[in-house]
């Protein structure tokens, strides 16, 4: 299977990535190539194989419920693109 322009536009939207009209043909071709590479997996019969998400298969450690953080708003917002009154600013959120 390979990508066409519509697929690429759909995925780019899902991933919130703007692609210019110029970028789309090359992106489509390259993504199709990558898809061709990964499609080689499809030939393998993996029935009965348990998926492996983490190599070591260890289990989650739990953290004691204690407050360890203090207010660092000024330091953290010093690197933010737009803030006001301690809030991060974004174009209007419409619900």
């Amino acid at each position: 299977m390979s990508f066409d322009r519509t697929d690429v536009e759909k995925i780019a939207h899902l991933a919130r990535i703007a692609l210019t009209d110029d970028e789309i043909p090359a992106t489509t071709a390259k993504l199709s190539g990558i898809l061709g590479l990964i499609d080689k997996m499809q030939a393998v019969d993996t029935r009965g194989v348990t998926p492996l998400a983490h190599p070591l298969e260890t289990t989650q450690r739990l953290r004691p419920d204690t407050v360890t953080e203090s207010n660092q708003r000024d330091a953290y917002q010093a690197i933010a693109p737009a803030t006001e009154a301690g809030l991060y600013l974004v174009p209007k959120v419409i619900e």
Binding site: V67, R73, A85, L87
Partner: peptide, 22 residues
């Protein structure tokens, strides 16, 4: 007392973004 994945407090009504850790 603290958040599910961080050590920030969960107190309601704090000043904006003062209980938001890294």
């Amino acid at each position: 007392a603290s958040k599910i994945f961080s050590g920030s407090a969960t107190t309601f009504g704090a000043e904006p973004n003062t209980q938001a850790s890294l």
